[in-house]
Amino acid sequence: MSSEQSNKSNAPKKSKGLNSRRDFMRKIGLIGAAATTGAVSSGFTSSSSANNEYVKVLTSDNKLVEIPKSQVQEVKLNTAALQSRGRIGIPGKRWVMVIDLAKCRNARECIKGCQEHHHLHPYQYHINTLVMQDNPQSAPYNMPKPCMHCDNPPCVSVCPVDATFKRQDGVVLIDNERCIGCRFCMAACPYSVRVFNWEEPFQAQLYKEEPMEYDVETNIPQKKGTITKCLFSADCLRDGELPTCVRACPNEVFYFGDQNEDAVTNGTTRQTVVLSELLEKNAGYRLMEELGTKPRVYYLPPKDRVFETPEKPDNHHS
């Protein structure tokens, strides 16, 4: 296990070559599959192509191997394979998000990107920007609110069917092929981040025209009568990419990274900083610490703001 782990923690290389290879493989849905080693996992549908060249492929356990091109089979993961992969998560990682409240001007680009990524109705928010005011004297500020991906997630505790679950890398996902739509998790979430598909999903027409495999890491296709929620763009994380909202922000609000590496990368400037230093220097805090939910999302206080303060919220706490 330890050798495998050391192997894996180095897997996300950022050198150009590997990155583009990953991109390439993601695009065509290619997963290492050598017929000789029988590495073709069950649950894949495949179509073979013949050629004599050798190609490098990444196996499903993250090993780089070279095999004859004739033996490469292009595989498309089916729902079950995507589900089992999605439930396992990425070993050795502990995703963490930092949101700098001083930088948010409510541009709502994160919301736009997210709603597109996850096929949401305009009224469904995986991430929402709220105008907050902590007390009558303090100035209001904008607060992007994704899922907190708590380390003690009340929503997961109450789920009767293991439809929502927490993975080893900290991400809380929802399997809408499992969900029975009881909405207990919505009642349990103190941050009100969970969203229900009350009606047919936004892209229902698209799903009808082009049926697609359900990917638990993007929660697409959305399904009527099931829960959906912020997923930290788990599909992007697998590909070494920052979550959609983080990348979409034009104002340097979001940092995202791996707590195990003690580093977070800003989605706008792409500068990587030391997580512990960032939180220490800026007095980072988490929402509703007193509830013991242990969120994986940190906020930097809205101090030294560069944008004008928003108008006072009229529906404070109601």
């Binding site: 791996d258 590496e261 990368t265 792409r270 500068q271 990587t272």
Partner: peptide
């Protein structure tokens, strides 16, 4: 130093 999403100086 390489990190998952970028390099740390």
């Amino acid at each position: 130093a390489q990190r998952y999403f970028g390099n740390l100086q």
